[in-house]
Nucleic acid binder design. Structure first.
Lengths: 154, 154
DNA sequence: TGTAATAGTTAGCAAAGACAACTATATGCC
DNA sequence: GGCATATAGTTGTCTTTGCTAACTATTACA
């Protein structure tokens, strides 16, 4: 039987935070790698959008430009990210991961992915398929410009 | 066809943050109501677990006890939450929303729910049902002790 | 009774986050 | 060309968040 968007929205709001709680806990455990949760978010954004501007990052992870600027300061100081000046518009900067940043992100992602896989290991194949199907639907809805999903930021 | 937990986990990690981005943006817009995102999380926890202890809240939203203590300070100062001493164990305190806190939470939740409903309004009834089904599966997995979903904290 | 363990708070520090004010570059209009 | 305006980032200053360590108060236990 069909379900109304309103009902789905309520369920989404009920369940998403429970899942995100697990994800955040994972991220927090990466503090052993010297990364705070916001820094991890900024790192993930840079991974997902290489060469993006500071403003784009700020808008995307939902902070103001000054906050993003200082967040990036920290990542640059740790040699995880590089600021480069944009050729053709010297006001702008572009953000990119260093090899070190890339490696750190991969490590953190692998940990998180493994932890989530373990969480889901109690599901049957068809339950996983149901989750998968919903994720595809939601992906098209919340990331309209992109073509394939994958690890995201935040 | 069935899907592996590993694959589902990857999709979950890819899509959840996109959805949470929208939710966080909503929460952030409630700063006009004078609440920061962490304060909103603490408020939501108190709403969902009335009479809970400080430790329980800290554990649940994923901060240390001192952090939770000061977070609650702020909410108490704004008269949204009350600290009461636990009868029978005077070391403990119990947290509860004031009428004001309840009202504020309701307002914020209604806004968020409406916004999410609008986001999902592009889906068909069967797509909503698919999302719904996945949410039920995930709920059982991530909130094993609870009996019915609904607006959650964080 | 007296020693653990538990629940919160306080102190002190670093980072996150906001706004306002600033610099530097680019655009646009006469 | 030349000045007004807009855009991209940075810096200053403040509050909040978040941590660890150290403390108080209460309870459990042996």
């Amino acid at each position: 039987m069909p379900v109304s968007p309103k009902e789905s929205a309520g369920q989404l709001l009920g369940v998403m935070p429970l899942v995100m709680r697990a994800v955040r806990a994972e991220m927090r455990s990466h503090r052993t790698l010297g990364l705070s949760v916001p820094q991890f978010r900024a790192l993930a954004f840079t991974h997902r959008h290489p060469g993006a501007s500071l403003s784009a990052g700020a808008e995307h992870i939902g902070v103001t430009l000054p906050t993003m600027s200082r967040l990036v300061d920290g990542l640059v100081k740790r040699k995880l990210v590089v600021r480069r000046s944009h050729p053709g518009d010297r006001r702008r900067i572009t953000l990119d991961l260093t090899a070190q940043g890339q490696a750190l992100w991969q490590t953190a992602y692998d940990f998180t992915h493994a932890s989530m896989t373990k969480q889901l290991s109690g599901l049957t194949g068809s339950q996983c398929a149901a989750v998968s199907k919903a994720m595809h639907i939601l992906f098209r809805l919340f990331a309209p410009g992109m073509t394939h999903e994958g690890p995201s930021d935040s």
